[in-house]
């Protein structure tokens, strides 16, 4: 009898498993409603990528509307969005890098090669900040207001279209709100 039940095992496993896929469908991975949205950027204390002696904290992200971009050298989609970040940086937008589960030397080389659009980069070697933040994978980009609140989150490549459709208006709004009051 137990033998017969074993034969049902694949079916049972699949029955448990299929609803997960169904739930996944409901959610757009490009726009996961981050648990952090509308909350403060989590506290952290991590070194700066280029200058390991400097320690960075959540306060360093406040005072200005900021993009936090999660990247890594092992993430090849990051190389695709990098030119766009370079361009945004030249337009005067403050972008902070969050180097995620990476090797310091390799990451520095990576930036030297592709240009460094970041005001500074947080070096999150073991992914602790990423975990607190709820990082799904690299690349990801978070839009923070001047108080350090997460206003918007985007998973995946930030290209011209994404910027135009999803970020530009939110960004301008936040900057105007900051200037007016």
């Amino acid at each position: 009898m137990s033998n017969r039940l074993v034969l049902f095992a694949p079916l049972l496993v699949f029955t448990v498993f299929a609803p997960v896929l169904w739930l996944a469908l409901e959610r757009d991975p490009q726009e996961l409603p981050s648990a952090r949205e509308g909350q403060l950027f989590p506290d952290f204390s991590l070194s700066q990528l280029v200058d390991a002696s400097k320690t960075l904290q959540a306060e360093d992200l406040r005072g200005e509307v900021t993009l936090v971009n999660v990247w890594a050298t092992w993430c090849y989609a990051c190389t695709l969005e990098h030119p766009m970040l370079n361009e945004l940086a030249t337009e005067g937008i403050k972008i902070v890098g969050l180097n995620y589960k990476d090797d310091r030397a390799a990451a520095i080389q990576w930036l030297e090669r592709r240009g460094d659009p970041y005001a500074f980069t947080i070096f999150d070697e073991h992914g602790s900040l990423g975990l607190d933040l709820g990082v799904y994978g690299a690349p990801e980009t978070y839009l923070l207001d001047a108080k350090g609140m997460v206003q918007y989150r985007r998973v995946g490549v930030l290209d011209e279209r994404v910027w135009r459709d999803d970020f530009a208006s939110r960004y301008t709004e936040l900057v105007l709100a900051e200037e007016n009051g």
């Binding site: 609803p19 997960v20 739930l23 996944a24 959610r27 996961l32 981050s34 648990a35 890594a72 092992w74 993430c75 589960k101 992914g127 990423g130 975990l131 709820g134 990082v135 799904y136 994978g137 690299a138």
Partner: peptide
């Protein structure tokens, strides 16, 4: 994600 264990990335 479906079970709300938070978002975990696997690299």
């Amino acid at each position: 994600d479906a079970l709300d264990w938070g978002k975990i990335s696997v690299g």
